[in-house]
């Protein structure tokens, strides 16, 4: 099939589509009333709930920080608190940027470049998040062990069972992080290829 043949087919299809009117006035006006499938909104809602959970943990940690009585437990507490604050705030900020991305006064190229850059920022943050969670899982375990059970996570004696559980958690987190990183990397690479195409 040559391009000219494609053009002719396309033109025939366009003519036939013009004859086939499906939309009614009501349907069209309904479409303008509300975006009932706004996926960014859904994503932002989940992230907002997540952010509230993080902030609740943050407040709980601030109220109990006096219980972290060694320098390393205090360090773990600070790392966990920073993560609980910075990560949701940045995620919501980048999501808002994508959600409010202006498309009306931009051309195809500007939209592609701008949107992919906004998406890349979010993806990079998610990538950092995947690795940061690897650390935070331990800092938070140490902090909560101290606050709830008054136990020092680093000094407590462990049996084989506990070490096995720890190793299992590590392996699980490692594979999850690697999977997450690869997914984000793939999307980011695709976005980069599009930007290169436009250069």
């Amino acid at each position: 099939m040559e391009i000219e043949e494609m053009k002719a087919l396309w033109s025939d299809m366009s003519n036939q589509l013009d004859q086939q009117k499906k939309l009614t006035n009501d349907i069209i006006m309904q479409m303008t009333q509300e975006k009932y499938t706004n996926k960014f909104k859904t994503l932002a809602n989940y992230e907002t709930i997540g952010a509230f959970v993080c902030f609740a943990i943050l407040i709980f940690l601030i109220l109990n920080i006096h219980k972290l009585d060694t320098w390393y437990l205090l360090g773990c507490g600070i790392v966990t608190m920073v993560f609980m604050f910075v990560f949701p705030v940045l995620t919501l900020r980048y999501l808002r940027k994508i959600k409010q991305f202006e498309i009306v006064n931009k051309n195809y190229k500007e939209v592609l470049v701008g949107f992919h850059k906004a998406k890349a920022n979010l993806l990079n943050l998610q990538k950092v998040g995947v690795f940061a969670s690897f650390i935070v899982i331990f800092t938070s375990a140490a902090v909560f062990a101290k606050i709830f059970d008054d136990k020092d996570f680093f000094m407590v004696e462990r049996g084989v069972k506990e070490y096995l559980f720890l190793a299992f958690t590590l392996v699980l987190v490692f594979f999850f992080s690697r999977w997450g990183f690869r997914v984000y990397q793939k999307v980011a690479n695709a976005a980069e290829a599009v930007l290169k195409e436009l250069e």
Binding site: K39, F40, I103, V104, K106, N107, Y108, V111, F115
Partner: peptide, 14 residues
């Protein structure tokens, strides 16, 4: 064309 194509570019795929 501009609005329609730009909208297609900025949607999230299901």
């Amino acid at each position: 064309y501009r609005i329609a194509l730009n909208t297609a570019l900025t949607r999230i795929r299901k």
